[in-house]
Structures are given as structure tokens and as C-alpha cells.
């Protein structure tokens, strides 16, 4: 059950569904996320034993079992995503299982949030933000890359894709920059019917006051 005391970084944003139906945006809040650093050759079995997911070793790929996925971030670095509430136990169990050198397990569930982008024009929206090749021949289901959207680091993960549902992208972004990225994505979707999203702003700023004075 969701703890009402928690608040997600994009709690102030309502999901967007473009009138055309070709683009939808929604926050996927509170997903458990852990950074796992280990040696694939030595530790894959241990990781799989705890998570139930086979450790993907091909660059920029992911593996999923049930509701858990492992996203390849680097030769010795993965992000484990799992349903809300699993992070603490997974952190404890993985730390116990990964006893060798050059390992690390860290809960980063609240560091990042996920913006799920769906709809037939999802690729076109992302192409306005990131420079990577998103064509289905080069970016198929399960692919995950770390990249930049303007000044923001993010992970782009094609969690699912089917003829019926189209692509399901999860964009994993720092909480503090989520509002900026949300608005950029909506802006990129304008041509496909997304409403404009005004970024958070209008705060009283120190410099602005000094300018007046």
C-alpha cells in the first residue's frame, strides 16, 4: 500500500495523453532502483540468485524476469529496477551475496524517477531530446542507453514494444531535473498534440531583487 507520507518528484504533474493518442507521458513513481557494481564473470550467478534476473552482459541491453529488470550501464555497473518496497531487502541480500572485491550495492530509488513515454510517436518525441539512433533496427525492445538531453543526463530504456501498444520508453532522470525533462518531453510532443507544460518557475530570485534595487 502506498504510504501517503511519500511524494514523488513529478507528483505535481498530471499524466498527458495527446489528443492524437500518439504520445502519452506519465510518471512511474517510487520504483525501486539500485546501482549494482560487480564483476559479470564472477558475480552473475550470485546476482541472479538474489534477483531472479540473468545479468545482461551485452552493452546497452537489459534483462527482465517478472517485475524486475537489470539494465546494463557499464562493463561493471547495472541498475536493478523492481517494484516499490523491494529496495531495502534487495540491497541487504545483494550486499550479502556480493562478497568479492570491486562490488557495490546502493539504493538510489529516490534519486531518480521514471517518465514513461508511450504511443506510436514516442520515438519522434525522444529524437527531439537525445542524439542516439532510435530506429527499430538499432533500438529494439530491451535496449537501454545513458545519454544527454540538453544539459541533463538520463537513461533511456525501451522497456517494451508491441505492434498493438507501440514503444514503451522509460526515461530515468534525476529527481531534481525531472520537471525540466517532463516539460521538454511535452514540448517535443507538441507537434503530435501534447499540451504545453510550463516549467516550474516564477520564484522570487535574489538577483532579480537586486536588479530592482
Amino acid at each position: 500500500m502506498l504510504d501517503p507520507r511519500r511524494r514523488s518528484p513529478l507528483a505535481h504533474r498530471m499524466p498527458i495523453r495527446a489528443a492524437s493518442g500518439a504520445v502519452s507521458l506519465a510518471e512511474w513513481p517510487f520504483l525501486s532502483k539500485l546501482i549494482v557494481r560487480c564483476q559479470a564473470g564472477r558475480d552473475a550467478t550470485a546476482v541472479e540468485a538474489v534477483t531472479g534476473v540473468a545479468l545482461p552482459t551485452t552493452a546497452c541491453t537489459s534483462a527482465t524476469a517478472g517485475e524486475r529488470s537489470l539494465l546494463w550501464l557499464g562493463p561493471d555497473e547495472w541498475m536493478l529496477v523492481a517494484p516499490d518496497g523491494e529496495a531495502a531487502a534487495l540491497e541487504t541480500d545483494l550486499r550479502a551475496a556480493l562478497t568479492g572485491p570491486h562490488t557495490q550495492v546502493v539504493d538510489v530509488s529516490d534519486y531518480y524517477t521514471v517518465i514513461t513515454l508511450t504511443g506510436a510517436r514516442g520515438r519522434d518525441v525522444l529524437a527531439r531530446l537525445v542524439t542516439i539512433d532510435l530506429h527499430p533496427r538499432h533500438f529494439a525492445k530491451g535496449r537501454v542507453v545513458g545519454t544527454l538531453a540538453g544539459a541533463v543526463n538520463l537513461l533511456v530504456w525501451l522497456r517494451d514494444e508491441s505492434d498493438a501498444a507501440g514503444p514503451v520508453f522509460d526515461v530515468i532522470v534525476r529527481a531534481s531535473m525531472a520537471d525540466h525533462v517532463w516539460c521538454l518531453m511535452a514540448e517535443a510532443g507538441r507537434a503530435f498534440g501534447c499540451p504545453a507544460q510550463e516549467p516550474r518557475g516564477g520564484e522570487r530570485l535574489r538577483g532579480a531583487l537586486e536588479d530592482v534595487a
Binding site: R7, P9, H12, R128, G150, A151, V152, R174, A175, S176, M177, D179, H180, V181, C183, L184, E187, A188, E198, P199, R200, G201, E203
Partner: peptide, 20 residues
């Protein structure tokens, strides 16, 4: 698109709305 309010990220903490 990187103009005006979209120019660059303005990072805010979870307490931002309370502070405002």
C-alpha cells in the same frame, strides 16, 4: 526548444514547494 523557461534545468529539492 532550449529557450526561456526551458533554457536549462533549474534543480529543486523536494522542499521547494514548501519554501515557495
Amino acid at each position: 526548444a532550449h529557450t526561456g523557461a526551458h533554457f536549462q534545468p533549474r534543480r529543486t529539492t523536494p522542499m521547494h514547494d514548501w519554501q515557495v
